[in-house]
Amino acid sequence: MFKITPMTATVIKNLFTRKSTRPYPHVVREPFELARGELYIDINDCIFCSICERKCPSQCISVDKKKGLWTCDPFACVYCGICMGVCPTRCLHHKKTWRPVATEREMISMQGTPPKAKKKSSAGKEPEGM
């Protein structure tokens, strides 16, 4: 004889309840508090020690101490949060949300002030390597 299994009941219930999926990107779920999303840097706190460059497992960060340039390839970044942990001035952070979908490959490039005073004028002189 045909009997109603609990799964049949669930399937029938699904017909009358809200959808489990959401029409992304029009509806976006609240991000979790501890989620590791897009990487960003407070460039003013950066001392260009390049520890993040050396510790990054995917080697997606490059730091130019002379020019005061911090560059990250977001397509190579694996969102592991290692750089965030090793940064001595705690200037690296992850946002809670992901990078939006992009049609072009784009590097994150941040221009800051190099630590030593003798190169101070370089910030204006050097063109930004976008």
């Binding site: 020690c49 520890i51 050396r54 510790k55 001595p88």
Partner: peptide, 8 residues
Amino acid sequence: MDEKTYSE
């Protein structure tokens, strides 16, 4: 190099 002191 001063960086060594930071590496945990």
